[in-house]
């Protein structure tokens, strides 16, 4: 479980997040939604410790991340898997080497065991045949899968996913979403997904967090999302024509 308490973040005089208070649930897909530039990614980066909050704190199982010493942070980070928007795969390493990378840095297992674990992860995301290729030689969807494989290599307790569907066709987006959902259930991770893709939200979100006007504007489940009468939330989720049709269908029963 991850708790965020009174978190604010500013860059110089520009305040991006203001007094965020919430809890991210274990074994669930927690999706942070909001317009571009609303501060979703900044919130995620504060939670994983890439940014230091201006105020407030982030608690991992009750322990404040920013109060931890260097070794404790290092230990915790080995329990975190992250899929970046850009995938952040190492271009000079093959797909197999990318997945093996965290194992080589931290795991106490033989080379053969590492290879077996990496192969298992690649099989899990259904790209076991691509191990010898370099990231530049595979498609964007496959790169996402490699990113997921690398994120789960160390059997993480926390999974962060930044815009998993950006640049993907709708069909591949669904495959990646389903993979995130399956992995969350399989490893019982506290999964935090940052997205503005409503298809993804309607597909896999267990808990939804709407960031608007620097604040956590609304929080709830999928059924609550559609029923909510929050004006700003309504404007955001029904901005797309598909979602407008959903609303029309709902109103007509």
């Amino acid at each position: 479980m991850i708790e965020v308490k009174n978190l604010s973040k500013s860059f110089g005089n520009v305040e991006v997040l203001q007094d965020i208070n919430t809890t991210f649930v274990k074994g669930k897909v927690n999706q942070i939604i909001g317009k571009s530039g609303s501060g979703k990614s900044v919130l995620a980066k504060c939670i994983v410790g890439l940014y230091v909050p201006t105020k407030g704190q982030v608690l991992y199982n009750g322990e404040s991340f920013h109060d931890m010493d260097k070794d404790q942070k290092k230990q915790l980070r080995q329990e975190i898997g992250m899929l970046f928007q850009s995938n952040a795969l190492f271009d000079s390493l093959t797909v197999m080497e990318n997945v093996m990378f965290p194992l080589k840095m931290f795991a106490t297992m033989s080379e053969r065991e590492m290879r077996e674990r990496a192969l298992f992860c690649l099989k899990r995301v259904k790209i076991e045949g691509q191990g010898k290729k370099f990231p530049a030689e595979i498609s964007g969807g496959m790169q996402k899968r490699v990113g997921i494989a690398r994120a789960i290599a160390m059997k993480p307790k926390y999974l962060f996913v930044d815009e998993p569907n950006s640049g993907l066709d709708p069909q591949t987006s669904i495959v990646i979403d389903e993979l995130i959902q399956e992995i969350t259930e399989e490893y019982e991770t506290t999964t935090i997904v940052i997205t503005h893709d409503m298809n993804s939200v309607m597909g896999i979100a267990d808990e939804i967090y709407f960031i608007h006007n620097k604040r956590l504007w609304w929080q709830g489940t999928r059924p609550e999302l559609l029923k909510s009468d929050n004006q700003e939330l309504q404007e955001f989720i029904f901005a797309g024509s598909l979602m407008r049709q959903v609303r029309k269908a709902m109103k007509s029963g």
Partner: peptide, 13 residues
């Protein structure tokens, strides 16, 4: 700029 350093940091490297 391609977030690879962030990826290393998050892994604990």
């Amino acid at each position: 700029v391609r977030e690879q350093i962030d990826a290393l940091d998050i892994m604990g490297v």
